[in-house]
Design a protein around this nucleic acid. Structure first.
Lengths: 348, 348
DNA sequence: GTTAGCACTTTAAAAGAGGGAGTGCTAAAA
DNA sequence: TTTTAGCACTCCCTCTTTTAAAGTGCTAAC
């Protein structure tokens, strides 16, 4: 890591610059830092340090004779610096947030839709950034029940309820001869054999059956099993997004081009889903700052995401999207607290 | 109507000003009008006419010595003027649009979700405004099938499929004692008695039963019927919205405050749903220009909406939201064509 | 290594100048 | 009575200039 090369004083200066800039989005000068953060060296010394920090890639000068602005590297330094502290020293506050939210969410425990809507709305409301939540991936949940409904001559609607109470449906082009009776017994078959089993397991097992019994059973059966398999696969598409206009009211996005860009990016659900699918489940809180983002379109934003879990297994993530000049302290607290609260609510 | 007071020439001038302004959003001058529209009077005369039009409330001058800009009244005049003509003289074009879209939609006939998504996306794409579609109100559709699924001790999920193949579900807090068996027979009862019947009818009929048989049947039954009734009511919430960023790239919304306002308004789904619920079903195409809008937030926008139908009965609306300075001709064509195409697709 | 001092840079805001587009008015012509 | 020609006037937009403020970088002394 680069910041090993910085001495303690330089770190303090860097930290101060980032904090100042987060507070107010204006280039930070040496005198300001000296006074506000009580350095007992004169501004020229700070100036030298800042110049060094610029050489190291932590600060950036919009033009000679302006103050300095943090680079992504500086935010990364700042976040790494405060991260542990936030979770440790702010635990009381975090606890409070968790308690308040959990109280609200408990009532919505049975209704995932409202639960996640409420969560993202509260998250956005509290932070003034964009709140996001990705619903549990169906494959990581278990089957509660499936129903097949013959809709038109050649169409079957498969309705699947998972153990979270999330209802999903899939339109399937089916063999015309099949009757509702037959579909009912198919559903019975699946429900009695696979209730409570994970979706990916079920699909795998069906595949096995398909291979094994293909020789004995007729074509219709194998086709039906295929339909069934198809009915149990859902790509990830349920993303809750709240508070776009909160983002748009920030001083960081105060020109027309930026606003348009943001709106375009955030409306691109696929992009966001792809991003959050890739969030590493191992990490408790994942922070992606600007250029670190794998997606071009999100490189002038920061993302803070945290998985929510059930019995230790992560189901999905909730996240905050804001400017790079984000109040990371507050943001980390809230994302952490909200993810925990969701985890509690779902595990109760 | 006020414009009865205008003579033919004044109307031509007014029409020209609106058309010019729609073409390019800059105050329109008298000389420009004279030359471009081949008036054989001199600019001073046009000037006098424009001054009269201003007195009548059709035009507005940003400041003395600027050209004139149309008021909402002028747009209304313009739209009333071109409306009939568009549908009459552009019918070939409209037919073409209908054909192309219908070809695309036909494949999605069984999947309402994709169908409406595709429709709004295409509508926005074609016009560069905001495309909207309100799904058929459940109450105006017929029951295809209902299922009750016992989810947790005190929770039942009602899953309803209507005759359009739209699946909706409702979480119901239920009496704890009820078993899945009982729920199944309840579903059987509803399905066999009410398949193909309109939702409002069914609810009404259930209510009648409830009143009539309350005395004989026990409390459980009446409670179940109540649950059932509840399960069959869905408030309107399915609105498809496409192309917010198209709106945001228009020159009409080229400052920060307007962009923020627009984003905030369009994110307000409830508002939009309320607006479109109130659209009069009688009219083939409803046009709401600026101040005519019942909702404050939408008063610097124009809305063009048209119901799509099935067997003469309107099911929902599709709409376009754009700036008041909208290309009404094109917009009317597209909304009209798209609504018709949806109507065909749903009636096939 | 740190400080004081000072010249220098750059921006942002204010002030001024000029040009252009378009109007309103008046008096004459149709 | 309506239309036209002519002209002064208004207002905005753009470009330039000025000024003040903030902050730097450098040098020489501590």
């Amino acid at each position: 890591m680069k910041n090993i090369m910085l001495d303690e004083r330089a770190k303090r200066v860097l930290w101060a610059v980032v904090e100042s800039y987060i507070e107010k989005p204006e280039p930070v000068g040496s005198r300001y830092i000296m006074k506000k953060y009580g350095f007992d060296v004169c501004s020229a010394t700070i100036r030298n340090i800042m110049s060094d920090l610029e050489d190291e890639g932590f600060l950036f000068q919009p033009h000679t004779s302006a103050g300095r602005v943090p680079t992504d590297l500086a935010y990364r330094f700042y976040v790494d610096y405060i991260f542990e502290e936030v979770l440790k020293f702010r635990s009381a506050e975090i606890k409070k947030i968790i308690e308040n939210l959990t109280k609200k969410l408990r009532k919505l425990r049975n209704n995932m839709n409202s639960l996640f809507l409420e969560t993202t709305q509260n998250l956005s409301q509290a932070t003034k950034y964009l709140g996001l939540a990705l619903l549990p991936e169906t494959d990581k949940t278990a089957l509660h029940r499936i129903d097949f409904i013959k809709f038109r001559e050649d169409t079957v609607i498969a309705i699947v309820v998972n153990d979270k109470g999330i209802v999903k449906n899939k339109i399937i082009r089916a063999i015309p001869q099949i009757t509702q009776q037959e579909l009912n017994s198919l559903a019975d078959f699946v429900n009695s054999n696979y209730h409570g089993k994970a979706f990916d397991e079920i699909r795998e097992d069906l595949l096995k059956r398909l291979k094994k019994e293909k020789i004995y059973w007729d074509k219709i059966i194998s086709k039906i099993l295929k339909i069934c398999q198809q009915a149990l696969y859902f790509s990830r598409e349920d993303l809750y997004i709240s508070g776009l206009y909160n983002l748009m009211y920030l001083p960081d996005f105060c020109d027309v081009e930026k606003l348009r860009q943001i709106a375009k990016t955030i409306q691109n659900r696929h992009l966001l889903i792809k991003l959050f699918e890739n969030i590493d489940d191992e990490e408790e809180i994942k922070i992606i700052i600007g250029e670190e983002n794998p997606f071009e379109e999100l490189r002038n934003l920061s993302v803070i995401a945290s998985p929510y879990k059930e019995r230790g297994k992560s189901l999905g993530v909730i996240a905050l999207v804001g400017p790079k000049r984000m109040n990371y302290e507050r943001a980390i607290m809230f994302v952490n607290a909200f993810a925990k609260s969701l985890t509690y609510t779902l595990s109760e």
